[in-house]
Write a protein that binds this DNA or RNA. Structure first.
Lengths: 141, 141
DNA sequence: GCAGAATATGTAGCATGCTACAATTATACA
DNA sequence: TGTATAATTGTAGCATGCTACATATTCTGC
């Protein structure tokens, strides 16, 4: 067993390296990668209200996981939540002013992160990589 | 932001899907994927003694992470550890009989897991995928 | 309308990852 | 030799993932 032979293990190494780098880069914003991804989602979906359920489904994680991340974001003042008046089971999640501002501060991070990861790859190679990963994902789902 | 556009996020989805499937499959053996990977390593390196440091470096994780996994494995009787007589700082890790037996029970898991993930991919595509992932890993390290 | 099912969120406890700090042992060099 | 440094392991506390169970609200079918 060595990293390049065991693709499952190699994917884990890559994923954790991405997380470590991103968490380091996001430290000045007092955010982790998982937390930043939630802010990105909220910013990109401001036209519609967002519930915990929406986030669970988009990020493919369990609801206790989302609750934990949202609680930390709300504690730091990046988001605000309130019970939906139409359906009291549902909690609607909003970006606060602070959350909106930090989003713009992180914009360069968001754009440069993927670019750095894909440097030295041609457009054709990137397309091929996405295509192969899609097949792998389909196989394991 | 959608999974196929953000390769970083997509890699996270794939990795967590692999872990969920593996942890489910390993439940009958009372093991998690991280724990099983340690047993695989110990089995493959029985000719040499293994320290915590060796495992940290191979799996590219911090030492408290390794300590936690080893403590759970030792608590369940799959491994045994003792202080090295030559260098009392070092703890040597060994597979127990129970650990050796469960390794053979899991052998089909180990072999079929990767195969399932890579079904519908030609040898050429698998080679290409490994090659692209190596470039990505090099970019982010 | 009411009982039971379904849905959304909350809580408890665990595994695996981390950093920061501590303790022990070995090494290096003045 | 003796002291400072390095190396290895240990501990505390946190973030993010999970399952299992609990609670509150809505929906369904009679």
């Amino acid at each position: 067993m060595c990293p390049s032979d065991d693709i499952g293990f190699f994917l884990k190494l890559i994923n954790e390296c991405i997380e470590k780098n991103a968490n380091q880069a996001l430290k000045p914003f007092d955010l982790t990668l998982s937390q930043a991804r939630i802010l990105f989602y909220l910013h990109d979906h401001q036209d519609a209200t967002t519930s915990q359920k929406d986030l669970e489904e988009f990020f493919e994680v369990s609801h206790p996981t989302i609750i934990g991340i949202l609680n930390r974001l709300e504690g730091k003042g990046f988001i605000h939540s309130e019970h939906c008046s139409k359906d009291k089971r549902v909690k609607s999640i909003f970006l606060t002013d602070k959350g909106g501002k930090v989003f713009y501060s992180m914009d360069h991070f968001r754009k440069n992160n993927e670019a750095n990861m894909l440097q030295d790859l041609t457009d054709k190679q990137i397309k091929e990589l996405k295509s192969l990963l899609k097949i792998v994902y389909k196989n394991i789902q």
